[in-house]
């Protein structure tokens, strides 16, 4: 499959499919748990070496949403993270910047200023992150505040309560209206897959989000025990592919939470490559939501360059 580097992406728009049609489309392909887990595990058997490894680690940085989502976040912390986002390894100017930093809405103005002109995006979580248990009007306000403050990307959470009680219409409508409130900001929809009952549910939530206009679908908030896994990501990648086949529109994918090592990141990239292909291997269509992953990737890159294993003391903790 040829890499379409310069191909511009058509942005996803909310569809006029009924929620019933969306759910039917999702259910037209069922998921077998054991089969999808075995397939996901098979990607970890690939041996990625030399050029491909370097390129993959590079890509891991370029597609990273460097994240801080703590109650203790301060402008100082966000500024430090922004500096790291632009120059992840100050000793090596060849290391690319990350894709975005991901913060709470309150920190968006700080991040925006710190990243000005760098090309690094500011992503803001919104909609009552992480639980989403706030009135819808508050969700909208949350989004508008972040967008007004200059967020390039909005990471919303779906209403899992509604989803689990079978009220798919509410989930669908909410995403549609949030998408509308985003304007030019790109929307990532967090399914919080760890709270959904099965892979079939993950697929259904993926379809509802995509049909409602999501630019990205994202696994997790990182705030509960179960975050991104390979199989759950695979289910979402398969859904993205089916949606693309139906509509011709490419939706991005963001596994978030629990991806801490270069090795894991490479496994995800192998899976991305062998399901959606090289076309998806770029920041417009793929993100790692992570915080501690970056230093491990930097350490690996230096190991590859020097041939000697590096240590954590040689990379900045921000």
């Amino acid at each position: 499959m040829a890499l379409a580097e310069s191909q511009s992406l058509r942005r996803n728009e909310p569809t006029d499919m009924t929620v019933g049609a969306v759910v039917d489309a999702a259910h037209s392909v069922r998921i077998d748990q054991v089969g999808v887990e075995e397939r996901a595990a098979s990607f970890t058997k690939r041996s990625i070496k030399t050029d491909a490894k370097l390129w993959g680690l590079d890509l891991a940085i370029r597609t990273m949403d460097l994240t801080t989502l703590e109650g203790s976040d301060t402008p100082g912390k966000v500024r430090a993270l922004s500096a790291k986002a632009i120059h992840p390894d100050p000793t090596n100017p060849d290391i690319p910047s990350v894709a975005a930093i991901c913060v709470y809405p309150n920190q968006v103005p700080v991040a925006k200023r710190a990243l000005e002109g760098s090309g690094v995006h500011v992503a803001s979580v919104a909609t009552g992150f992480p639980s989403g248990q706030v009135p819808f009007s508050a969700k909208l306000d949350d989004v508008r505040a972040a967008v007004d403050a200059g967020a390039d990307e909005i990471d919303m959470v779906i209403d899992r309560g509604a989803f689990l009680r079978g009220d798919f219409a509410t989930v669908y409508e909410e995403v549609k209206r949030i998408r509308e409130a985003c304007g030019d900001a790109h929307l990532k929809v967090i399914l919080e897959t760890g709270e959904l009952g099965s892979y079939d549910d993950v697929r259904t939530a993926s379809w509802i989000s995509m049909a409602a206009g999501a630019d990205f679908i994202k696994t997790s908030t990182g705030k509960i025990g179960v975050a991104a896994t390979m199989p759950v990501t695979l289910v979402m990648l398969d859904a993205i592919r089916d949606y693309w086949e139906l509509t011709g529109i490419k939706i991005g994918m963001k596994p978030a939470g629990g991806i801490r090592t270069s090795k894991q990141a490479l496994h995800y990239l192998v899976m991305l490559n062998e399901t959606l292909g090289l076309e998806w291997m770029r920041p417009e269509l793929w993100r790692f939501g992570a915080s501690s992953l970056l230093n491990d990737v930097l350490m690996q890159l230096r190991t590859q360059a020097t041939g000697a294993y590096s240590g954590p003391d040689y990379f900045t903790i921000d």
Binding site: L3, E5, R46, S47, I48, K49, T50, D51, A52, K53, L54, W55, G56, D58, L59, R62, D94, I95, P96, S97, V98, A99, G119, V120, L269, N273, L278, M281, R282, P283, E284, Q304, A305
Partner: peptide
């Protein structure tokens, strides 16, 4: 193989494909 030069662009492009598994 020795490490190739990393992509000059810092974001937005995938760079030349070196994703063929060695």
């Amino acid at each position: 193989t020795k490490r190739p030069a990393p992509p000059k662009t810092t974001r937005g492009k995938a760079g030349p494909n070196r994703w063929d598994y060695a």
